Simulated assay, not measured.
Amino acid sequence: MLWSGVRMASFEEVSAELNRVVAKSEEVAAALEQAGQLADEAVQLLTAVMRGAGQLEGEFGQAVQQWSEVATRAAELSQAVTAVRQRVESYRRTLEADRASSNAAGPTASAGPPSSLPPTTWIERQRAQLPTYVTSGFHRDEEGHGDLVQSGAEPNGEDRAIAQHLVAIGRVRPRTFPTAAQHVEIKVGWRMRTSGVRRAEVVVNNRLCEGPLSCFELLPLLLLPGQTLVVHDPVRSHTFQGKGTR
């Protein structure tokens, strides 16, 4: 598994967490809808009050405009929350479909590596389910375990540990932070290194970055000898062999 010292969550646990996310998003959407309605009521009340307000009519007009903007913004946020909830629900349905397919195929097929499925089918299916609002990737290791990985800082400090390692091996200057430490491909490579997985694939929704201190340059240094990571970006597939030291 690609989690460094962390137990891979079961399907039931992942499904339960996704259900909680959907429930929370519904609560947020409902609260935003109520906020928009209250803002609309405020606009109506102020509009009625400002008539005949004399010198204060200009100030009341500004207040009406501000409350109107609040109502508009609440509606926009509600739509954004709904869109994210739909993506989560889509991801959950994909997991459920994969689970059902694995159960129907039997234990031997479900435990197989990524190559046990037609590669293009697996790649296209995963890419179709990836969120579009943030760089994301879905990885799968040699035992068939997989998970969604997204770019950005990690609550457990994983990205900082990656940066410290790059400093320790002399690839990054002290007191600097390479942005690649928060990239999907680098996180997967780091988890392979710390868990000992020998081979994995990751499908990402953005092109692999290149240049100094890029994923293209740093991945071989994170992977240990004997480890292989295949990155499928929207343009092509890239295979990285480990050249790092312990």
Rank of each mutant, 00 (worst) to 15 (best):
W3R: 12
G5V: 02
V6N: 01
E12F: 09
V21H: 05
A23E: 15
A23Q: 13
K24T: 15
A31E: 12
A31Q: 09
L32N: 04
Q34K: 14
A35K: 08
A35I: 10
G36I: 11
Q37R: 15
A39T: 02
A39L: 02
D40C: 10
D40P: 01
L45V: 09
L45Q: 06
T47V: 08
A48Q: 00
V49M: 00
M50I: 00
R51H: 08
A53R: 14
A53C: 11
L56R: 11
G58I: 10
Q62L: 15
A63R: 12
V70D: 02
T72I: 11
E76Q: 14
L77T: 06
A80W: 03
V81R: 00
R85G: 11
R87D: 12
V88N: 12
S90C: 07
S90W: 06
Y91F: 15
R93V: 04
A97P: 02
D98E: 13
D98S: 11
D98L: 14
S102N: 12
N103M: 13
A104M: 05
G112T: 09
S116W: 01
P119S: 12
W122Q: 10
Q126G: 03
Q129K: 03
P131L: 04
T135M: 02
S136A: 15
G137F: 00
G137E: 00
D141M: 05
D141N: 14
G144I: 08
H145V: 11
H145Y: 09
G146C: 04
L148I: 15
V149N: 01
S151W: 08
S151K: 14
G152H: 13
N156P: 10
E158L: 14
D159V: 10
R160P: 04
I162H: 02
I162A: 03
L166S: 11
V167Q: 14
V167D: 09
A168R: 15
I169D: 07
R173F: 00
R175S: 11
R175I: 03
P178A: 13
T179I: 11
T179S: 14
A181F: 07
Q182P: 01
V184S: 09
V184M: 10
I186W: 00
K187C: 13
R193P: 06
R199N: 08
A200C: 03
V204C: 02
N205Q: 04
N205V: 03
N206Q: 12
N206R: 13
N206M: 10
R207W: 05
R207C: 09
L208R: 06
C209Q: 09
G211H: 06
S214T: 12
C215P: 01
C215W: 02
E217N: 09
P220T: 13
L222C: 07
P225C: 06
V231K: 04
H232S: 05
H232F: 10
D233W: 00
D233R: 01
D233Y: 03
H238D: 01
Q241D: 08
G244N: 05
R246S: 11
